[in-house]
Design a protein around this nucleic acid. Structure first.
Length: 258
DNA sequence: AACGGAGCCAACCGCGTCGGT
DNA sequence: GACCGACGCGGTTGGCTCCGT
């Protein structure tokens, strides 16, 4: 069965809304509410389909719409929420008062995605250096212990060669320490502008103690600390670099005594 | 000044879901 | 349970603006 078009195109206007049409829609909804969207244009005297009226109202004319550029805080929130929820724009919009799903979707595609890709590529470059150093240290050392560390990064050799030891000083001497995932990351990532070449100033101190894996606090509801969730399956291309080295589950890594 | 490409954003389209009958 | 209409959502598009040449 072929679904009928959402509205009959005969005689109905499409494209950008005029000021007059906006006024008609606003005053009608203020007086009567939107009620049945499909019936609204006829009742209001608009040559538009109900769907178009609904979209115009939701995305532009609603009195509680916040216009203007997104603040850093809003961008942080979008990045966080998108990581948790994926492309569920309406769910994300629900957490950002005054912003619409359409607006958030546009901002994501035109601005935030690029920003994250930039950060990703910068850090990927740095990670290559780190991996090389780790491989070097593995080839020079002896045994690794009960480390249950797993990774989705197939070429990250120290994980697969568990009989080797990574000495803590080798790790500490790496050019770029592993980033710590905490609240500051998000604001730093969002603040990283197009011209910056700096890595977010963060660090992960690898010690001889029991070390809880980094765990984004906002994911708590979705991924309880005890779960064995593979983070990588929930991340998008721009973000998985944070996790693929050292996160697979909520387990702890116990580093050996040296 | 003219042109073309890139970026941005409002609007459209099609599909899934929900609720009423 | 099946059908149908309405709504909501996410992906996509078209046109406008800006910027570089």
């Amino acid at each position: 069965m072929v679904r009928a078009p959402c509205c009959e195109k005969m005689g109905l206007k499409r494209g950008p809304w005029s000021l007059e049409e906006d006024q008609i829609l606003i005053s009608y909804i203020q007086k009567h509410g939107h009620g049945n969207w499909r019936a609204l244009p006829k009742l209001a005297g608009l040559l538009r389909c109900g769907k178009s009226c609904r979209l115009r109202w939701i995305n532009y004319l609603r009195p509680d719409i916040k216009r203007g550029n997104f603040t850093n805080e809003e961008e942080e929130s979008i990045i966080k929420l998108h990581k948790m929820l994926g492309n569920r724009w309406s769910a994300i919009a629900a957490k950002l008062p005054g912003r619409t799903d359409n607006e958030i979707k546009n901002v994501w595609h035109t601005h935030l995605k690029k920003k994250l890709n930039k950060i990703s590529s910068e850090l990927s470059n740095k990670r290559v250096v780190s991996k090389q150093k780790i491989k070097r240290s593995v080839s020079n050392s002896s045994t690794i212990t009960e480390s249950e560390c797993t990774t989705s990064s197939s070429d990250f050799s120290f994980v697969d060669e568990r009989k080797d030891v990574i000495k803590s000083e080798d790790i500490e001497s790496m050019e770029e320490p592993m980033p710590e995932i905490d609240e500051s990351f998000w604001s730093e990532a969002a603040a990283l502008d197009e011209t910056s070449t700096d890595m977010p100033p963060s660090s992960l101190t690898i010690s001889n103690e029991i070390m809880p894996l980094p765990y984004p606090s906002d994911c708590g509801d979705i991924f309880p600390q005890e779960s064995k969730v593979d983070y990588n399956s929930n991340l998008d291309d721009g973000m998985d670099f944070w996790y693929d080295i050292f996160i697979r589950s909520g387990d702890q890594i116990e580093l050996p005594e040296f």
